[in-house]
């Protein structure tokens, strides 16, 4: 069985026929070729596949493509503007919030969710907000700094 789906990813609509069992993350990576979204586990733990689904964070490994029919998805490739990085991307770069980079796309989108829900989080709130994203390189410390830095930038930008 295949099912027609229409999913908008990073502002562009894609109409495809998919098997019901196809995960959204494989739709994004294998069908659309947008490989910035990563797969790091098979039990919804690591958060490497975190995307924004209709504006809120979701683990794309725990969602079928058919469930996302009609939805709007933002991946790491769609976060930056035409010419400039998103403040979170800038802050991860400025604060050395990444090493091998594999968890980074998911970590940045999880951080996006965190700041959506709490524009001015404390370090402890950041640590809790990122509890669903694993990083084996950084010990998280510079990720916390990066998110804090982005929060300050983003608040500065709106005030």
């Amino acid at each position: 069985m295949t099912i027609p789906v229409s999913i908008t990813v990073n502002g562009r609509r894609y109409d495809r026929e998919v098997e019901p069992r196809l995960l959204l993350v494989h739709f994004i990576r294998d069908v659309l070729g947008l490989t910035g979204t990563k797969v790091g586990c098979d039990t919804s733990q690591c958060g490497s596949c975190t995307i924004l689904l209709d504006g809120v964070s979701a683990k794309a490994c725990t969602c079928l493509a058919v469930q996302a029919d009609g939805a709007s998805v933002t991946t790491i490739e769609g976060l930056a503007g035409d010419s400039e990085l998103h403040p979170l991307q800038e802050s991860f770069w400025n604060k050395h919030g990444l090493q091998c980079g594999y968890c980074t796309p998911g970590m940045i989108l999880a951080s996006h969710e965190l700041l959506r829900c709490n524009a001015d989080p404390s370090a402890e709130e950041i640590r809790h907000g990122l509890e669903g994203n694993m990083c084996r390189c950084t010990g998280y410390q510079n990720i916390v700094r990066a998110v804090r830095d982005a929060a300050e930038t983003m608040q500065g930008g709106t005030s």
Partner: peptide
């Protein structure tokens, strides 16, 4: 700042499975 990072923070890097 690291010179590796621009490709990593934008999803442009290619790992083996990519």
């Amino acid at each position: 700042r690291r010179r590796e990072d621009p490709r990593l923070i934008t999803g442009s890097a290619s790992y083996t499975d990519d």
